[in-house]
Simulated assay, not measured.
Amino acid sequence: MTMHGAPQPPRSCLDRGTRSPINDTEVNAMRAAAWHRHGVAAIPVEDIIDPWLRQAITNEANRRWGRRNGENHHGR
């Protein structure tokens, strides 16, 4: 219980119970903002239709940051 006029507790993204899950519209808005403000394109690999381009992007991400957990290694 808080007193009337008392300051609100600090908000944090780690506080799981205060916000509903982000929906696809909000995620796409964040991706657009990242592109326009920082030149960063956040595209899910599964959304890339061209197999050559998808593999090239996957290879570069693996080179920079390592393989994803649960990534399909195609028998390797």
Rank of each mutant, 00 (worst) to 15 (best):
N23P: 02
G39C: 14
W52Q: 15
T2Y: 01
T25E: 03
G75K: 07
S12R: 14
I43T: 15
M3D: 00
C13K: 11
N28L: 14
I48E: 03
R67Q: 03
A42S: 06
H73P: 11
H38Y: 11
G39D: 12
R64H: 13
A61C: 14
T2I: 12
H73Q: 12
I22K: 12
A6M: 10
P21Y: 08
H36G: 01
E60D: 08
M3V: 10
D50C: 10
T25L: 03
T2G: 00
A29V: 12
R76D: 03
D50N: 14
A29F: 03
G66R: 03
S12C: 07
E46C: 07
H4I: 08
E46T: 11
E60P: 00
N72Y: 04
G17W: 12
N59V: 10
R37S: 06
N28H: 10
A42F: 02
S12G: 07
W35L: 06
A41E: 14
R19H: 05
N62V: 09
W52C: 15
G75F: 08
I43V: 15
T2P: 00
R19L: 11
H73F: 02
A61M: 13
M1V: 10
A29M: 09
A29H: 00
I49N: 12
A29N: 00
Q55I: 14
D47I: 09
I57A: 06
D24M: 01
R67W: 01
I43S: 11
M30H: 05
